[in-house]
Design a protein around this nucleic acid. Sequence first.
DNA 1: ATGAAAGCGCTAACAT
DNA 2: ATGTTAGCGCTTTCAT
Lengths: 347, 347
Amino acid sequence: MSDPLRPSATLEDVARVAGLSRSTVSRVINGSRNFAPTVREAVRKAIAETGYVPSIAARSLASRRAGAIALVFSGIGESTDEGSYNGEVFADPFFGRIANGVTRFLRPRGVHPTLMFAETPEDRDHVIAYLRRGNADGALLVSTHPNDPLPEQFADAGLAAVLFARPARMLPISYVDLAHRDGAALAAEHLLARGCTRVATICGPLDVAAAQDRLNGFREAMARRGHGYVPSVEGNFTLESGEQAMSRLLAQQPDLDGVFAANDVMAQGALIALREHGRRVPEDVAVVGFDDSSAATFCRPTLTTIRQPVEEMAGEMTRILLEQIDQPEHAITSVIFDPVLVVRQSA
Amino acid sequence: MSDPLRPSATLEDVARVAGLSRSTVSRVINGSRNFAPTVREAVRKAIAETGYVPSIAARSLASRRAGAIALVFSGIGESTDEGSYNGEVFADPFFGRIANGVTRFLRPRGVHPTLMFAETPEDRDHVIAYLRRGNADGALLVSTHPNDPLPEQFADAGLAAVLFARPARMLPISYVDLAHRDGAALAAEHLLARGCTRVATICGPLDVAAAQDRLNGFREAMARRGHGYVPSVEGNFTLESGEQAMSRLLAQQPDLDGVFAANDVMAQGALIALREHGRRVPEDVAVVGFDDSSAATFCRPTLTTIRQPVEEMAGEMTRILLEQIDQPEHAITSVIFDPVLVVRQSA
DNA sequence: ATGAAAGCGCTAACAT
DNA sequence: ATGTTAGCGCTTTCAT
């Protein structure tokens, strides 16, 4: 047990105690070559004796590798002074789930993410400069606005980065994503299997790729089963928009018996509107959401929904980034995860 | 476009462009002395021109300070394989709000938090070791379990740390917290002002200091206004526990006309139970929650609740930590924030 | 007030 | 295989 106030032993100290040179000790520690067991043992002993712990600052300065990665949330955090929050990320434990998946993967590897938020152009430039400067070896980018320029800035700067979702424009950057179409298809199949025949959908903002995919996937699956026309109203992923969209759909088609909402929060809004219009869920109208966020279990009836394995996706995103840092020439790899239908009360 | 392997300007470059020496530029940047405006301006310009960003590794090696702080979430993240989440933090954008408050304070100071989760004893030891090594100068500790040993480990190790809430046991560590008693009193006053006369409360788990305070604060305020007895049922901050607690309270006292729940999620559970029991909110029973979390606006009626200024608290927590890192001899300072009543539909 | 120079502790050529 | 040496980019005495 070493005194935290006392400067800890350096590699030099270890070398002296072990009767070896600094570089040999360094090599043994970093396992860069095969050494005689006697040498390894001498080093091990000297480390134990001196209580040596490497300085990551020195290591990083000498090796020109940060040994750290940045976890960047971009285009979010626009909280107003009133304390309300915009965007899917803040209205959800999304942030925490991603952070959890990332750290879970990183921890065994002794790496820790540096947390960065980028809201303004200055923030984004700062993130890029920070990485260029070598303060992190790469970035995990969670960008929630379709027009966020940060992914492209990363691509242009040639910095290692992996996105959490497919960018709006094609970009030479790896990403992880969900098979949104398949998820929407699961929702369609489930509604049809329940016997729904007059089905509508509340889609998300169509400039968001995921919202597009969910809508198209749902329509295609319905079309395949003979339902060529599916009424839809566009929401913006908020509760209110879901509520309004549901009312509009009911006005259009009062005998509706099934609804697919592109996220759980809008589905919850739909639930509220349906109750106000005197519809029972799921008896009169079945409702399926998307995401399996906390909203799905925080309402009554609880939501049948399509689950995104966010933690798993975040872990894979991290794995890809480390791979890319290790082999900069490595090709762009993107991984698409399969959604899962979670059946609860609403459908 | 610069090669990411040899990327960014160094202090040397800035000095050359500014026509000054490295040390002068360093001093100006670190504000260690008063410089002529001309010099400051020259440096500022040279930095802008070169796009200089300091190397944290080099700075840290030379200054023997990490220049980084750790943001530690302890005792959370116990997601099950089924994909459900426990704990207040994950069931809420709490995590994001804290992270936001912290980064918002840190960003102008050029510091970025290193994100760490500590769930297991190994994790906690790792966090301590990480700090001892000097990889971070201090820690912001968000500990959600009353028996989490990490705060005490920090105290024992003599490491700089600030807690997000008052620890269960007294510890020589600074913290920020909410005046929970005052918040509960606000709830009591509001219910009484509405004309409620038969009021009950759903309290949180009583091993959590905040839950204790909210219960005591509520009871005291009620007692001051002549209501010596307030029925209470203990929940565990989950929706289901709120639902059950509400049912039990109704069974005990069917003519109840006001309820204070120790958090919004339980209040939402209470709303559900009240509806099932045919009570209208707020006409028959008024409900007040606590936290002003997203749950408060994601239900109908929307929740009247007590707001915690989480971002502000997180910012202050960060300020205290930096102060403590700067002056290790500085006394323990804790700051208690005032809660605010947010009136919506439920009461 | 400003500059010169000495490291901080480590890795990685380059020797041997 | 192991040792020698030259930095990595910055802060910080110590001179001036």
